[in-house]
Amino acid sequence: MLDLAAELDRWFRRGRPFAVATVAATSGSAPRQAGAALAVDADGTVAGSVSGGCVEGAVYELCRAALAGHGPPAAVEHFGRTDGAAAAGQDGDPFAVGLTCGGELDVLVQRIDPAERPETGAALAAAAAGEAAALARITAGPPALLGRALLVRPDGCHEGMLGDPVRDASAAAEAAALLAAGRTGTAVLGADGGRCGEPLTLLVESSVPPPRMLVFGAVDFAAALARAGAFLGYRVTVCDARAVFATPRRFPGAERVVVDWPHRYLDAEARAGRTDGRTAVCVLTHDAKFDVPLLARALRLPLGYVGAMGSRRTHLRRLEQLREAGLPEAALARLRSPIGLDLGARTPEETALSIAAEIVADRYGATGAPLSAARTPIHRPHPALAAAPDGP
């Protein structure tokens, strides 16, 4: 639901009820991940998506029914695989609603009344403002508890109630951990808030400020990459020590243009806590006096992506210089150089596409190979999600 925060915050402020359907759990090749949502207001206006089209009509009708007061205030609906031809051949309904991709979705459908959900309104307002916040909602457990919500701040403070102080404290701790990692996921608690009793499943949606892309080198490739980064949702900064090239007019796609030595700027940003495991660093300067000090620092930081432009010969020479600077092989293995995927790119725009594609593939641990030739799942979770099982 927090992925629709900008729109839903406006609806909430109007004080009118709306219904929201949120993907609570997935399996198989599901088109959207947990937290994706579709919302419907009293006028029938739709925002968002839960499946990319497969079950949108059915979910819309469920939201309309929830708004009209038909059924409980919150309920979980399951959508599985459907194949019209196969179903028809087995006396099934060839028009059955389901996912043709072979995945399965559990969707929490809930009526939201602003007068009764202040914690939800606060979570939407925080997410819409770009602030860090998590919203934990019960998606499995006793029917009377479905949809109950808790807003959790980065410092662990929380608003709302799940029905029991011990349960609230346990849920807040689980949500704070997911928020610190910038993850949306599920957690399982016992009904008493511990690990015993009838289990409760929480969907924890994390909203964190947009990730940063730091582009070093005020060149024409940087201008195209700044636009691509902004399109992907990054807050883009272009940095170069040469004031004549590093001007806002040349980089309209960047949020900031900074005149500073690249390594000095990265040092300052890291010390100030403005880089993290989602930050992408792209080095486009082609100049060892800038590249080597910068990469020597970047490869020692817990960044999401570090790439550097240059020929293969330049790359090998740069590796030797970095080894001389004391970097171990494990750090050097993190360097994506020559930067980008092999698309045959030539123009700045094509090169920016190549770099952006590698950043996305790297984020999800994907190969970058053509899907037509691959045998891996099309939709996959972030590696951190796959490595951290839900619940106890």
Rank of each mutant, 00 (worst) to 15 (best):
E119A: 15
A173P: 04
D91I: 00
F12V: 01
V20P: 01
R153K: 10
T351G: 09
V55Y: 05
T100H: 07
A280N: 12
T186Q: 10
D240G: 09
W261Q: 04
Q110W: 07
A126N: 04
R10W: 04
R242K: 09
L343T: 05
R13N: 03
R323D: 00
A36P: 12
G391M: 13
A172M: 11
G130N: 07
A129H: 08
R271T: 13
G80T: 12
A176C: 14
F290R: 14
V166S: 08
S372Q: 14
V236R: 01
T367V: 01
P114T: 08
Y265M: 13
G69M: 13
A366H: 10
R313I: 08
L145V: 09
E320M: 02
F245H: 13
T184K: 05
A296T: 11
G190Y: 09
L99Q: 07
F251M: 04
L319D: 12
D106L: 13
V306N: 04
L299P: 09
T82H: 12
A134G: 07
A68T: 04
C157W: 00
D276F: 04
P154V: 05
A373P: 00
I359G: 02
L151V: 00
P211F: 09
R297I: 01
A386F: 05
G163S: 05
F216G: 00
L225T: 07
G121H: 09
V258F: 09
L108W: 06
L225D: 03
E56C: 01
R167C: 14
E269V: 10
G190M: 09
R313Q: 15
F216R: 00
D168C: 03
P73A: 15
D113A: 13
P210T: 07
W261R: 15
R137N: 01
C63T: 03
G89I: 07
A241V: 02
P389C: 12
R271C: 10
D164W: 04
L67H: 05
L135H: 10
R312E: 09
E7Q: 15
Y364M: 09
W11D: 08
G15C: 02
A24V: 01
A357F: 11
P328T: 13
V50T: 10
R323T: 06
G193W: 00
D3Y: 02
G92V: 01
I339W: 10
A373H: 01
D113V: 14
S170K: 06
P72T: 11
S372P: 03
V166C: 06
A254M: 09
V292E: 07
E349T: 13
I112D: 01
A387I: 05
Q90M: 07
H70N: 06
L145M: 11
L301V: 01
P383W: 03
E77M: 02
A42N: 02
G28I: 07
W261D: 00
